[in-house]
Amino acid sequence: MAVLGRGRRLRRDWLLLACAAPGLVWLLVFHYAPLLGNVIAFKDYQPYVGIAEAPWVGLDNFRIIVNGDPAFLNALTNTLVISLLQLLFVFPVPIALALLLNSLVSERMKRTVQSILYLPHFLSWVIIVAIFQHMLGNTGLLNGFLTDHDLGSVNIIGNPELFKELVVAQVIWKDTGWGTILFLAAMSRIDPALYEASAVDGASRLRQLWHVTLPGIRSVVALLLILRLGDVLSVGFEQILLQQNAVGPVASEVLDTYVFNNAVGAGSWGASAAAGLVKGVVGVALVLGANKVAHLFGERGVYQR
């Protein structure tokens, strides 16, 4: 293609630019401008004064993080505990389910099961929480059944001691089916000749699973694990916010809800923005770090070296 001058390219491409303009302007106003708004982490921001007029306070807002505000530390602990529980219990379930689905011979049965299990992914957290309350709440189905049969009752929803387990169970219910998609796609790309060859060599189905299927999905597992690590500090914001009233902040406050409640509720905007900013930076650092580790183990990771 001949290299055209800027003026001639503008005359040729102005309609394309005009097409891109609305979306581009939106991104600048509602994405990049707020991104710059993070400067209030370094300011003493008060509503009604405005971001530009607020006085600079240097790193003052970050002091709460360094000095260990008990509410912040509580939120951090809860976040890490829930994240760890999710890593241990939520992450492996879709892999197991995908292995099970992949081993089905009947294509129709596989598809039916998939269409049922994908469904909860499309529902919002408000709906999921409402459904869980109806099933497990104090006036819900389970307790109705138990009282009807004189078996007493169980306090699940609104019990601070079971809150973290409840959160994990809800995530499993909502996203396990959906989580199988990428694993199933990886499994479908495994060369069938590998299975045939191993069968000729006398491998049982269990050995095929261990020596063919699992190595075949290893890089996808590594990739998703890295992305999960980047999200270690953000656990179910909406999900937890919705259920905080019932169990109180000690059991349920996580970093995201802390940032939100502390700013919109308590009015410490600068400090909340600082906490949010630190969270974001740590998240990016964790992804980069995990990616490095993946490279050391010979995996491709999210991006190449």
Binding site: R6, D13, L17, L35, I40, W269
Partner: peptide
């Protein structure tokens, strides 16, 4: 086409970084 490269970058970066609750 004119400026398509930088605009594409603007779109890609918007996927990577979200502005956060409070600035939004």
């Amino acid at each position: 086409s004119l400026a398509s490269r930088p605009i594409l970058m603007v779109v890609l970066f918007s996927v990577l970084f979200s502005p956060g609750i409070i600035p939004m």
